[in-house]
Amino acid sequence: MSADKERLDRAIIAMRVARELPAGSCVNLGIGIPTLVSMFVDDESVVFYHSESGVLNCGPLAEEGEEDIDLINAGGQFLQSVPGMAYFSSVDAFAMIRGGHVDVTVLGAHQVSANGDLANWMLPERGVGNIGGAMDLAAGADKVIVAMEHNDRSGNSKVVQECDFPLTGRGCVSLVVTDVAVMEPTPDGMVLREAAPGWTPAEVQEVTDARLIIPDNVAEYEV
């Protein structure tokens, strides 16, 4: 059963996403796996981090004992102070996002559909949820990458033909990186680009709700 096959860990997902960040780009990282991505971006790339908490060119997380309540990221984690930062208000933070000044955002998700719809703000059984900055990032960033586990804890595929959870944005996702595969949503459907080591395309399809378009040249997931 492919469902029991070994999957990649969260750090590997983050490493794979890090390869997608062009040198000199401005990047916003969401909470969870996306936060880990910055650990795998090499210094040569000079990637600039934007946080909707109101800071640009922000650095790594603060060391224990060095936390400053006035320097946080969007997930409420404490940041180190680094040279070249700029502080700004929430309205400017989102002007940057909606205005197309943020090149890439990496977000977690509950579901991504074959055509790139994103659902990541509410689990229907809870009946209430937090939107935070997700809808603005989905609508505004030039490129939206989703980094997540392929299946939820009950084994349900999070890569779906159509989302049945409330949407964050329509057709906004351009790449999906999971612990099993790298996929590209397109108007024609979800294209499988890379499969995790040891996984065949057919095995990826087995754990995936979306009907995958499987080209001849599916690569091995490279990190």
Partner: peptide, 12 residues
């Protein structure tokens, strides 16, 4: 419920 950027923009 209001998206965060929309909240900021509505306040502005």
């Amino acid at each position: 419920l209001v998206p965060q950027g929309t909240l900021a923009e509505r306040l502005r």
